[in-house]
């Protein structure tokens, strides 16, 4: 019982504290322009470009970019919440502690999913005021679920990058690169069938792709059951990236103890 309580405490309280301490962009003066302002202008930019090219509807671009904006929080924050332990010199005490690694690791993902959900919701809300995007109120709960799942898979991906940060020097460079690759490969602004086959194949293995597809169908009026296949695929991708991140973290932890390379910058 006490071990369960300790697990839960570490999961919730530890996750929240680490998010507050290690996510560099939490201050409103950074959070508002970066996490809210930039995604809103991204939505506007690509929606107007889509109108100019007569490519897809406003709704198609709004949903794609709003769901994609949850990846900004998830990928960057996921990377920061692990890699910053090293930069701030708190990694050694953390790994010397007997804390349950699964609770430590999974607890960090909850605030990131909530953050991603919030960022996407703001993007969708502002778009409904400025653009031709008016989803039915009944579709919002399903849309929220799809965005939460997408944020979860992006968080898994971000934690994987963060785990690499236990070894790599400049992991934020990698996070930037991954973020832009997702923008290109995941069918956010270019329909997947307009991409070369190899890009589409990579996109199908990345987080977001299936989530965006599901969200677009839900916003167009489909029931959650009709997009269950896409949502479960996104869940599977989230689990795969999350598990890979956990095992990589454990591996690098063991290796860095063995090679005394924990604090090597």
């Amino acid at each position: 019982m006490s071990s369960l309580r300790s697990f839960l405490r570490l999961f919730f309280v530890g996750g929240l504290i680490s998010y507050r301490a290690l996510f560099n962009w939490l201050r409103p003066s950074i959070y508002i322009p970066t996490m809210l302002g930039a995604p809103i202008f991204q939505i506007l930019f690509f929606t107007y470009l889509g109108r100019f090219r007569d490519l897809e509807s406003d709704s198609w671009f709004v949903v794609g970019n709003a769901v994609q904006s949850c990846s900004m929080a998830a990928v960057y924050a996921g990377t920061m919440t692990i890699a910053n332990e090293r930069w701030m010199g708190t990694l050694s005490p953390l790994l010397a502690s007997p804390a349950n690694r699964a609770a430590l690791f999974l607890g960090r993902s909850v605030p990131l999913i909530a953050n991603g959900l919030f960022v996407s919701a703001v993007g969708l809300g502002v778009s409904s005021l400025l653009l031709d995007f008016h989803p039915a109120a009944s579709s919002l709960p399903a849309l929220g679920l799809v965005v939460a799942v997408s944020a979860g898979s992006c968080t898994g991906f971000g934690l994987l990058l963060g785990s690499i940060g236990l070894r790599a020097r400049d992991v934020l460079f990698g996070a930037n690169l991954a973020y832009f690759l997702m923008l290109l490969f995941c069918g956010v602004n270019v329909p997947l069938d307009a991409l070369p086959a190899w890009m589409e194949a990579i996109g199908r293995a990345l987080p977001l792709t299936h989530g965006i597809e599901a969200a677009r169908e839900v916003a167009a009026g489909a029931a959650l059951g009709e997009v269950a296949g896409l949502v479960w695929t996104e869940v599977g991708i989230a689990v795969a990236y999350g598990a890979s991140a956990y095992f990589l973290f454990s591996y690098f932890e063991r290796e860095s103890r063995r090679r005394a390379s924990l604090e090597t910058m």
């Binding site: 470009l49 889509g50 100019f52 090219r53 007569d54 460079f173 930037n176 602004n189 270019v190 329909p191």
Partner: peptide, 27 residues
């Protein structure tokens, strides 16, 4: 790496998206 390499690569991602959008769309 951040200002130099990424500064060059970043616009390439957006240019690629724009090229695909221009190719796929009408107008």
């Amino acid at each position: 790496a951040f200002d130099g390499v990424l500064g060059v690569m970043w616009p390439l991602f957006f240019a690629t998206i724009a090229f695909f959008m221009f190719r796929a769309g009408g107008g």
